[in-house]
Computed example of a mutant assay.
Amino acid sequence: MSSFWSDIASFPSASSPLECMLHPIEDQTVLSVSGPDSHKFMQGQFTCNLTDITSSQYRNGACCNAKGRMVSSFQLHQQGQDQYLMALHASLAQITQEHLKKYMVFFKCKMMTTDYVLAGLSGPQSEQLLSSVLGACPHSDFEQSQIDGGFLVKLPHGAGFQLFLKAEQAKQTIEPLLSKCTLSNNKLWNQNLIHHGIGYITDKTSDEFIPQMINLNQNNGISFNKGCYTGQEIVARMQYLGKLKRHMYRLSIDPSSTVTAGDHAFIEGKNSPVGMVVNATITSEQQYALVVLEDKVLPEISSSKLYLGDNQGIAQELLSLPYDVIDAQPE
């Protein structure tokens, strides 16, 4: 746990907390992209449409290699004229910067790491708490609200809210929230994302998946009418020609074996992998994972064992997601 959250952990617990949990998010990093060509540069690299991103609307997105495989996935936010913030898994901060600097040299913009503090809020009374304490709360999915010392966004599919706070002002925002809710942890936040079908790339899965494989289109992360970007031809071909045969599904896993991102999935009796783990988290009671699987093996899961990783974690059940996994093909 970071020194910031270690200090926060000593804050007195709420005597009568609302039905709301505040989760430290310590495995994400925020990169800034700024400069007069920042919009133009990112429009030619990212799957999302930069024209959809405003001071009140954010988008998910990904940057891909020439083969259409995701180097990283992220949330992208506008913070001012020619100023943007990318929130992505911390393991991908350097990888993403190294990938993008090859293209950035031709544009008047720069990218650097920031010290934003991130927190998530989940639970039925989250909106009530945020409105009363911060004086603002976004009401629609992908909406973004400015607050003192940062900004606040609403995640899709009922996954809750995410706070972005400047380091020097984070404590004065977090403590009033904690006086009325329960402090959770990063692991339970990731479990919340998995429950709501929000997958994200880490260094273990970089360059492995085409965006639609992790259902990025169901999470408002792909524009099919924005024009060209690196990898766009492959992404569009998979969408319009219906050639994509793998998608991301949610599974419960036997908690006796730990499953991690990048682990391969195998059907009992078959040697070739049929998928790969995108994200996984384990608690004292259960383990859950988002796994990209070949669509054709889904009927076999109920009749055959699906093994995950070197520890042979066994998938127990195929669970629902809050959206249809396979979209109808565009006309």
Rank of each mutant, 00 (worst) to 15 (best):
F161D: 10
H23A: 05
L308F: 04
S16Y: 14
L251G: 02
K110V: 15
V33T: 10
H77N: 04
N217C: 13
S3E: 13
G242D: 08
D207F: 15
H196A: 08
L321D: 05
L306P: 02
D254C: 09
P24R: 05
L152F: 06
H77V: 00
N192A: 14
F4N: 11
E127L: 01
Q329G: 10
I301D: 12
N186Q: 06
D263H: 01
L50Y: 09
T202Q: 12
G227F: 07
Y249N: 04
A167E: 11
H157V: 06
G221N: 00
S38F: 04
Q28V: 12
P330N: 11
M238C: 07
N271D: 15
K102G: 06
I301L: 15
T182P: 08
P12L: 08
G150K: 13
I194D: 02
E331V: 11
K204T: 13
L318H: 06
G309V: 01
F151W: 07
Q172P: 03
C109P: 03
A289H: 01
S179D: 11
A87R: 09
I194V: 07
P330L: 10
L100E: 03
L88W: 06
Q287A: 04
T51N: 14
N65W: 03
N219F: 04
E127G: 02
S6D: 09
K180C: 14
P273R: 03
Q312G: 09
L76C: 12
L293F: 06
V277T: 15
K101T: 07
N311H: 02
N65I: 04
T205L: 09
L155D: 10
V297Q: 03
M213Y: 01
S252P: 00
A14D: 13
Y307H: 01
S34M: 09
S122Y: 12
F224M: 04
S304K: 15
L22P: 04
I282K: 05
I174A: 15
G158K: 07
P138G: 03
Q97G: 09
N192V: 14
K108F: 05
S272L: 15
L118R: 10
L188G: 10
H247N: 11
H264C: 02
D254L: 07
H196G: 06
S304Y: 13
D52H: 08
L298S: 03
S145I: 13
T96C: 00
M86H: 07
D115I: 08
W189S: 14
F46P: 08
F11I: 01
N311M: 01
V71K: 09
G199P: 01
P12Y: 07
E331M: 13
M276D: 01
G80T: 14
I234S: 13
H157W: 07
L308P: 12
I201D: 10
Q43I: 06
L118F: 07
G227L: 07
E331A: 14
N60E: 11
P138A: 02
Q94I: 15
V133G: 04
I282Y: 03
